[in-house]
């Protein structure tokens, strides 16, 4: 039981890393990015290439993969998202990002085939022994990485001039334009940052799970659940929701039955939304932070 709680907290950190970009992009741009799952997989494959072919450590490799994914995000935003009309932006974004996901999946399939791969490093199968419990290095490192990156995003949002522009865009795009914020530029950079953070999530995911180009579909429903529960646009909410959901799921799997764990995961979303439609840190409260 306690081991399940520990597992849930640590795994929650990994999911928060993967979900952070999703909630950031939605918060600023009203874009429901269903390509987030494939961006996770793309990040994992970039780490795979650096690790297997160049022998670069997974965490060191983030210094390359995160900027690379930032560029990918900027290009995707500029080529596909920026051309969506304002009126049906949110609805159309689902179709556009789904098309992007299909394209990236196809390219990954051509380059890497459909065989499953996994990221390996010396710390992937080792663990700390603390108070009778084993804490896997990779999950601990991943959790720390999540805390650092999410903290950095938080500081960027609330302690920088660019963050003020982001929050202004987040609150009211038209009003932000009126006060001189280049909303399109902010949106492009934010999309890039959201995708760049996903590279880190993809690396940790790839080190804890096998993946292939189709794996994105396994992830997107869970990531959407987390960001909705955490409140669309809330970085802290994503972390809190990810930890809560994974702890709940893991405890149910151990104490009750693994068969019911996924059901409880999604049932929790329904229960929370019926009581608090804006999620734990709902959109309005998130934007007022």
């Amino acid at each position: 039981m306690i081991q399940a709680v520990v597992d849930g907290v640590l795994t929650g950190g990994v999911y928060a890393l993967m979900a952070a970009g999703l909630t950031l992009i939605f918060g600023v741009m009203d874009i429901i990015n269903v390509a987030q799952g494939i961006f996770v997989v793309l990040g994992a494959y970039l780490s795979y290439v650096l690790s297997v072919h160049l022998g670069i450590d997974l965490f060191v490799g983030l210094l390359i993969t995160m900027p690379a994914m930032f560029v990918v995000g900027v290009v995707v935003q500029w080529v596909f998202i920026s051309r969506l009309g304002e009126r049906e932006r949110t609805a159309m974004s689902i179709l556009a990002t789904y098309a992007i996901a299909i394209m990236i999946e196809g390219i990954l399939g051509l380059v890497f085939s459909d065989n499953y791969v996994e990221l390996n490093a010396w710390y992937v199968t080792r663990s700390y022994h603390v108070f009778g419990f084993y804490l896997p290095y990779i999950y601990v490192f991943g959790f720390v990485l999540a805390a650092v990156l999410l903290g950095a995003i938080y500081l960027m949002l609330y302690k920088t001039r660019f963050g003020a522009s982001v929050r202004a865009s987040l609150q009211d795009r038209s009003a932000a334009r009126l006060v001189g914020v280049n909303v399109d530029r902010v949106a492009t950079i934010t999309f890039g940052i959201g995708v760049a953070v996903t590279a880190a999530g993809g690396m940790v995911y790839g080190a804890t799970n096998s993946f292939n180009p189709n794996t994105g579909y396994d992830l997107i429903s869970r990531l959407l659940t987390i960001v909705i529960l955490g409140g669309l646009g809330s970085i802290g909410g994503a972390l809190g929701a990810a930890v809560c959901m994974l702890v709940l799921e893991d405890v149910v799997a151990v104490v009750w039955s693994p068969v019911w764990a996924p059901f409880v995961f999604f049932a929790a979303l329904v229960v929370v939304l019926s009581v608090r439609p804006t999620g734990l840190f709902g959109r309005s409260s998130a934007r007022a932070q």
Partner: peptide, 20 residues
């Protein structure tokens, strides 16, 4: 002796329970 759904993406708690 437990069955887990094929949709599982996080096997850690199940595997840890087997280990326990």
């Amino acid at each position: 002796s437990k069955v887990f759904p094929s949709e599982v993406t996080d096997f850690t708690p199940i595997a840890d329970a087997v280990a326990a």
